[in-house]
Computed example of a mutant assay.
Amino acid sequence: MYGYGSAPRHLLSEDRQEYERILDDVLRSAPERPELAGVGQWLYPELLRPMVLNATALITVAAASEYQHYVKIRNELRHPAPSTPSSFHEPGSTEPGTGTMGLVASMGEASETTGAGVGAVAAVLTPVLTGMASAIFLLVGYLLKMVDPDPGIAKTIVTTGWVFGAVTAAAILAAVVGLLLTALRNPPALDAGPYDDLDLTKEVARAKDAWHDALVERGIMPFLRDALAPDSTSPDFGGPE
């Protein structure tokens, strides 16, 4: 027999206090439960509590499956399974095709990175250079137009300046379109970790509630009903055989 006031011994230590809290909630709400109307009449909570704690091994069996599921899900949340490590081959690995495929992939990635870098530089520099050229040609052309007599080359220089201005506008538009297309092709990756953790946290909460309900409805309540039965000399717990 367990000593009076002892905590549940077969539960994990972190769940013993929770078990006693559930018991205290049931005893506290006993006046509101018709089936526990005898609490306070011929048996007081102070006497029932150690009786229930003494019968912990029998009471918790009624909710054993729910408790095992709760502990399992809780452990999964606390100690998530490590992600599958990427394959690693030693320098001397003889697996066919591994070295060749790795070299091709590396070269492809390098070429893509180089191409992307050159494209980005060109997209940035083209509007700047053509804009500067446009400003210079227009300035020189209009200054020459102010000279009397007007040299014939001034008109050509001004026209060239406007051409460079049009190229600048087109380059800016192309850069904007390129950025939009790049953003559409490469949307930001969503990290699934927090959502998985959130779902697992909800699952733990549901498993905990299921254990609480089973513990109360199939364990504590039947024991208290038997203990409060007027013709019973000792509680006859109706748990699973």
Rank of each mutant, 00 (worst) to 15 (best):
17 Q>E: 12
74 R>A: 07
204 V>F: 00
57 A>T: 15
86 S>C: 05
114 T>Y: 10
198 L>K: 15
42 W>L: 02
136 I>L: 06
157 I>C: 03
140 V>I: 02
10 H>Y: 06
236 D>S: 14
71 V>A: 09
132 M>S: 11
163 V>F: 09
117 G>A: 12
111 S>N: 13
172 I>P: 12
205 A>M: 05
103 L>S: 12
49 R>C: 05
2 Y>D: 04
224 L>I: 02
173 L>N: 13
155 K>W: 06
50 P>G: 04
26 V>E: 05
238 G>D: 14
24 D>V: 06
46 E>F: 01
120 A>Q: 13
173 L>G: 13
60 T>W: 04
108 G>A: 09
240 P>H: 07
130 T>V: 04
139 L>Y: 10
123 A>I: 00
180 L>E: 11
76 E>G: 11
3 G>E: 08
126 T>G: 09
108 G>P: 09
19 Y>S: 08
43 L>G: 06
94 T>N: 12
148 D>Q: 15
163 V>M: 01
114 T>M: 09
135 A>V: 01
111 S>C: 02
33 R>Q: 13
69 H>V: 00
45 P>D: 07
108 G>W: 04
59 I>L: 02
110 A>P: 14
169 A>Q: 08
187 P>Q: 05
151 P>K: 14
202 K>G: 02
239 G>E: 07
239 G>C: 01
17 Q>S: 08
108 G>K: 15
27 L>E: 09
132 M>I: 03
127 P>I: 02
100 T>D: 13
8 P>E: 02
54 N>F: 00
73 I>N: 13
164 F>D: 03
102 G>E: 05
69 H>F: 00
18 E>Q: 11
104 V>R: 15
132 M>W: 04
58 L>G: 05
25 D>N: 14
201 T>C: 00
183 A>S: 14
176 V>S: 08
212 H>Y: 03
222 P>C: 01
241 E>P: 14
78 R>Q: 10
75 N>Q: 15
73 I>R: 14
209 D>P: 05
159 T>L: 00
4 Y>M: 00
96 P>N: 07
17 Q>W: 08
188 P>H: 07
35 E>L: 10
97 G>E: 12
101 M>F: 07
26 V>P: 08
193 G>D: 14
230 P>N: 08
104 V>Q: 10
46 E>M: 06
129 L>C: 06
107 M>E: 11
231 D>N: 11
119 G>Q: 14
164 F>V: 01
100 T>Q: 11
88 F>W: 11
131 G>L: 01
161 G>M: 02
149 P>T: 04
213 D>F: 01
103 L>Y: 06
4 Y>S: 11
7 A>E: 10
59 I>M: 04
69 H>W: 08
169 A>P: 10
143 L>H: 07
98 T>P: 12
95 E>G: 07
116 A>E: 08
150 D>N: 12
83 S>Q: 14
